[in-house]
Design a protein around this nucleic acid. Sequence first.
DNA 1: TCTCATACTGACCTGGAGGTAAGCATGGCG
DNA 2: CGCCATGCTTACCTCCAGGTCAGTATGAGA
Lengths: 124, 124
Amino acid sequence: MASVMKNLPPLPAERTLRVISGRWKPVILYHLLSGPRRLSELSRLMPAVSQKVLIQQLREMEAHRIVSRTIFPQVPPRVDYEATALGQSLKPVLMALCEWGRRHAAELDEPEHVADCARLSLPE
Amino acid sequence: MASVMKNLPPLPAERTLRVISGRWKPVILYHLLSGPRRLSELSRLMPAVSQKVLIQQLREMEAHRIVSRTIFPQVPPRVDYEATALGQSLKPVLMALCEWGRRHAAELDEPEHVADCARLSLPE
DNA sequence: TCTCATACTGACCTGGAGGTAAGCATGGCG
DNA sequence: CGCCATGCTTACCTCCAGGTCAGTATGAGA
């Protein structure tokens, strides 16, 4: 929808939150940061997400220009989703979120079952 | 609710998002980062938020240990809300979010009406 | 006694995000 | 011909964050 774009909050921090918070967006982003992926690949990478919802999230990310969509005229069809430069620029933001999340978990939860932030810092 | 705590996602980045995303949490945090505030003060600082919702958000933040609540046994009652150390440690995260939001706005929106990130970087 | 400020709680409602399930179009291939 | 993989849409439902509005307790002070 076009409304997706115009409804971005004026406060920058809230704007970013609006762009990246969505049930599956961080995970999708995480996968796309290491290169383009076909829809079917993403589906296989996150079996918990239905195709409809996956496409939904991807389209919103596309509208926000952090993801681009490339259609290859083949049969069966092939569509690649890829993080744009703007999308790539979210990497440090995700890092910050990830690191604080670990800290938060460490300070009050049982700190055990929290994944690390490793692959976000790897070059690609 | 107690459920607020146990339902934190295992992925660190999502965990952080869960903690800070709430309709008014970033703004509340922003105000609390510069010192303790009474409920009535916060109410005055953000007239758009109803008291009930404000308290709601504050309680969740308290449950997540990023805000502490101090009751002064006076009449009329006085209650101070304050960012904990954990809450203060969100400052760089908010900065990252704010900066990216500005970049995002600059790159595709009309970049005009987006506030700056100034006061987040000021010491307190 | 009535009012006021303060900090809350509770009943109720609603929009929208996200979930399920099904259907559609294409063309290669057995 | 029937079937497959792929990418996508549509109809429908559920749940809950967050909104409105009203009510409660306290004691100082007019």
